[in-house]
Design a protein around this nucleic acid. Structure first.
Length: 409
RNA sequence: GUUGAUGUAGUUCAGUCGGUUAGAACGUCGGAUUGUGGUUCCGAAAGUCGUGGGUUCGAGCCCCAUCUUCCACCCCA
């Protein structure tokens, strides 16, 4: 009876892992260069942290459990809430703005499908303390830079919830939620039905449909005609101007609702092709969560990137390190270990661990696609040298250890 | 939670109408005597046919359940 991997989890083989680490580090380096610092939060948290943020409803898609002390816990389903909790616990008195990022695994108890797993990795950024257009613009521009750097073809949609909230301010909160959900899903027929049911004014209905059907990049003048010259829109225009300066490509879409109530103003989403139904690779916006966790009235902006989805469509190839195998004979094996130890200061070296004969060691080197073989035999040691064999060309030369090190450095 | 497909060595797949001991290729390991790989040849290991029931004299094959994987819904990354 073999034990299998739990549902919705994956094993990453050496090749997969190398590629993931490569892409991951590219994203890390870029984000560090934008002045963001990486943080790590616990893999599990109190269940409350997430029900507080997203409502009791999400409990059914959480990996939650009671610990031995009878506390309700859960594996984290996302990282925005943990980062906000960390901020409230530890960082409230630090200088603003705080530029943080994370790269961690998350867990959701859902049916797996294409690009959706029960354990998945999220890369994300949270900029805490500024609600200025510059903050929004930098976060979007960083997301854009990351996606460009890892070579995925995608498009970005930016919206602003303040606009649509202004339009809907006369309606009851539950109605607003319903409307937003339908808008987010672009279910215009359903939306029309709902609007008929609740009987809103014709003017509002007209404006609403006009707003959500606006498309393109320079549509803010038309938006102004609909909702007026509200301060949020003025700030948003400023953000967009900054984005043009950053050189970010985007579409505007005031129909983005992001499903969640705590987003306050700017929201954005990035979609890619080739992922089936799960084609959103990034989502973010500005939000107010800190008060919810007992902190002050501090604004923040952030995004999350679905790293597994990036890996599925990203075209980057990690550079493979040269593979070197050291071949020895029983008489020279101890000397080979000493040489390997020295060479391992410079590059990856494998030695025989199977007591194989000369020929089989060479054959093994070939099987694993080694680039070079270094022969540590009596003949070589007799003259104080080693044979370096190029496994691709088949050529070999007699060199000193120093010469070999020089060749590889 | 809902729907549809799926499952046979490590991998990709055969397996006749339900009939004896489930096969192949690739891969892995070993061998073809001396310190030179790839090609070739020989050999070996490797499977409770996803699992559990049922039908049958007899099930890899038929039926039921369950699990996995994959696609989609829901939700979201």
């Amino acid at each position: 009876m073999t034990v299998n991997r739990p549902r919705g989890t994956r094993d990453f083989l050496p090749e997969d892992t190398a590629r993931r680490k490569y892409v991951e580090n590219i994203m890390r380096n870029i984000t560090c260069n934008w002045g963001y610092s990486e943080i790590i939060t616990p893999t599990f948290e109190y269940l409350d942290l997430f029900t507080l943020k997203s409502g009791e409803g999400i409990e059914r898609e959480l990996y939650n459990f009671m610990d031995k002390g009878g506390r309700a816990m859960t594996l984290r389903p996302e990282l925005t809430a943990p980062v906000m909790r960390l901020y409230v616990n530890e960082l409230q008195s630090f200088p603003k703005p705080l530029n943080l990022f994370y790269f961690e695994n998350c867990f959701r108890y859902e049916r797996p499908q294409k690009s959706r797993f029960r354990e998945f990795w999220q890369f994300g950024v949270e900029l805490i303390g500024s609600e200025k257009p510059d903050a929004d613009a930098e976060v979007i521009a960083l997301a854009y830079a990351l996606l460009k750097a890892v070579g995925v073809s995608c498009y970005m949609k930016i919206g602003n919830l303040a606009v649509i909230r202004t339009l809907l301010r006369g309606l009851q909160p539950e109605i607003v939620s319903k409307v937003m959900r339908l808008i987010d899903k672009k279910e215009y027929v359903g939306l029309e039905v709902l609007i008929e049911e609740i009987g809103v004014e014709d003017q509002l209905k007209f404006n609403l449909f006009k707003l959500i059907k606006l498309e393109g990049r320079y549509i803010t003048p038309q938006v102004k005609e609909i909702v007026g010259n509200i301060p949020e829109l003025v700030a948003f225009e400023k953000t967009l101007k900054l984005l043009d300066t950053y050189g970010v490509d985007y579409f505007l879409d005031f129909g983005i609702a992001r499903g969640l109530d705590y987003y306050t103003g700017m929201v954005f989403e990035v979609y890619a092709d080739g992922l089936g139904a799960q084609k959103q690779i990034c989502g973010g916006g500005s939000y107010q969560l800190i008060q919810l966790f007992g902190g002050g009235d501090v604004p923040s902006t952030g995004f999350g990137i679905g790293f597994d989805r990036i890996m599925e469509i990203c075209t980057l190839v990690n550079p493979a390190p040269k593979k070197v195998v050291l071949i020895s004979k029983p008489e020279t094996h101890l000397e080979a270990i000493k040489l390997a130890t020295e060479l391992r200061k410079y590059l990856p070296v494998r030695i025989d661990l199977m007591e194989r004969n000369f020929k089989t060691q060479l054959s093994f080197a070939n099987t694993i696609n080694a680039d070079y073989v270094i022969i540590v035999g009596e003949n070589e040691l007799g003259v104080g040298k080693l044979t370096l064999k190029d496994m691709i060309s088949g050529e070999q030369e007699l060199l000193t250890l120093g010469e070999i090190i020089e060749k590889f450095s």
